[in-house]
C-alpha cells in the first residue's frame, strides 16, 4: 500500500539526471571491460564468418554468405549440433537432479557440517576444468582406469567397460564439472527459504514428500530455471570436455569451431560455425527462460 508512495519517481533537473545516471555509473568499469574484451571480439569473430580470409588477411571479395551457406548445407554440422544439444540437455538434467538434494541438504545442516559441505561444493572450482577433465580420464580410461580396475578386481565384470571415448563419458564429465554452477543458485534460494510454507503444507495434510513436490520445488522454480539455463549454456558450448573424454574421432559443434579455427586454420568456416553455435545457444536459452517464465509467472505479479 505504501509502495506506490515510496517508488514515485523523483523529479530531477537535467544536470542532476546525468549525474545520477539512473544508477549506471558504478557499472561503467565493468561495461567498458566487457565491451572491449567480449563484445568487440565476438563481433570481430562473427564478421569473419561473412568474409573470406586468406593468409591472415581479408581478401577482396568483401561480404559473402558462402561460408554460412556451406555450414548450413552440411549434414555433418546438423548431426554435430544435435549431439551437442542432447548431450547438454542430458547433462543439465543430471546436474539438476544431483544438485537439488545437495542444496536442500545444505539448508538443513548446521554449523561445521554446513561449512564442510560448502567447501566440498566450491573446492572443485579451485582447480581448472582441464585438470578435472584429465581426472576423469584417469578414472574411466582403459583397462587400467580406476573404475575398470576396481570392478575387475571385485569380479563385478569380466571385460573392462568401454566408457571413455563415448558420449557417456562426456555426459559424466560435464555433469560433475558443471555441478557447482547448478548448486550455487539453488543453495542461495533453498537455504534462505521460509520454512513456514512447508509447515503450512504439512498442516493442511500433505506428507513431507507431497510438500517437497508441491511447495518446495515450485517455490524454488525461479532458481531452477536460472541454474538450468546457465548450465545448459556452458554445457552446449564446452569443447574441452567432449574433446578429451570423447576421444580423437569424437566431435560436437563446439569442438568443430575449435578444430576449424586452431587446427585447420579455416577461420571463415570456424567463424561461421561459431555464429551458428552462438545463435542456437541463445535460442535454446531463450526457450528455457520463456518456458521457465510460464512456470514462474506467479513470482512476477504485482498488486
Amino acid at each position: 500500500m505504501t509502495d506506490a508512495v515510496l517508488t514515485q519517481p523523483r523529479r530531477l533537473g537535467f544536470a542532476r539526471r546525468v549525474i545520477d545516471g539512473g544508477g549506471l555509473w558504478p557499472a561503467v568499469p565493468a561495461l567498458v571491460y566487457l565491451v572491449l574484451f567480449m563484445v568487440l571480439p565476438i563481433i570481430t569473430l562473427l564478421t569473419f564468418g561473412f568474409v573470406t580470409i586468406d593468409r591472415g588477411a581479408i581478401t577482396d571479395g568483401g561480404f559473402t554468405l558462402t561460408h554460412i551457406a556451406g555450414v548450413l548445407g552440411d549434414p555433418l554440422v546438423w548431426n554435430l549440433m544435435w549431439r551437442s544439444f542432447w548431450i547438454a540437455v542430458v547433462s543439465t538434467c543430471l546436474t539438476l537432479v544431483l544438485a537439488y538434494p545437495i542444496a536442500y541438504a545444505y539448508g538443513h545442516l548446521k554449523g561445521v557440517w554446513r561449512t564442510l559441505l560448502l567447501v566440498a561444493i566450491i573446492s572443485p572450482l579451485l582447480t581448472s576444468a582441464l585438470v578435472r577433465t584429465y581426472a576423469w580420464i584417469v578414472i574411466l580410461g582403459g583397462r587400467r582406469g580406476l573404475l575398470n580396475q576396481t570392478l575387475l578386481s571385485l569380479g563385478v565384470i569380466d571385460q573392462p567397460l568401454q566408457i571413455l571415448n563415448t558420449s557417456t563419458a562426456v555426459v559424466m564429465g560435464m555433469t560433475q564439472i558443471h555441478l557447482p554452477f547448478m548448486i550455487l543458485p539453488l543453495l542461495a534460494v533453498l537455504s534462505e527459504r521460509d520454512r513456514r510454507f512447508e509447515e503450512a503444507s504439512l498442516n493442511l495434510g500433505a506428507s513431507q514428500v507431497e510438500t517437497f513436490f508441491r511447495v518446495t520445488i515450485p517455490m524454488t522454480m525461479p532458481a531452477i530455471v536460472a541454474g538450468f539455463a546457465l548450465v545448459f549454456a556452458v554445457s552446449y558450448t564446452n569443447f574441452i570436455i567432449p574433446q578429451l573424454l570423447g576421444g580423437g574421432n569424437y566431435s560436437t559443434l563446439a569442438v568443430q569451431v575449435y578444430e576449424q579455427t586452431i587446427v585447420v586454420l579455416d577461420w571463415s568456416r570456424g567463424a561461421a560455425l561459431a555464429t551458428l553455435l552462438l545463435t542456437t545457444c541463445f535460442a535454446f536459452v531463450l526457450a528455457i527462460v520463456s518456458v521457465g517464465g510460464r512456470l514462474t509467472r506467479w513470482s512476477e505479479v504485482r498488486r
Partner: peptide, 21 residues
Amino acid sequence: LPPNRRDVGYVFQNYALFPHL
C-alpha cells in the same frame, strides 16, 4: 502424530499463503 495427520488448522503470523498458487 506428525503434523499432517492432526486435524488441527493453523493460521500463520505472515499467513504463509503459497505464492505460486
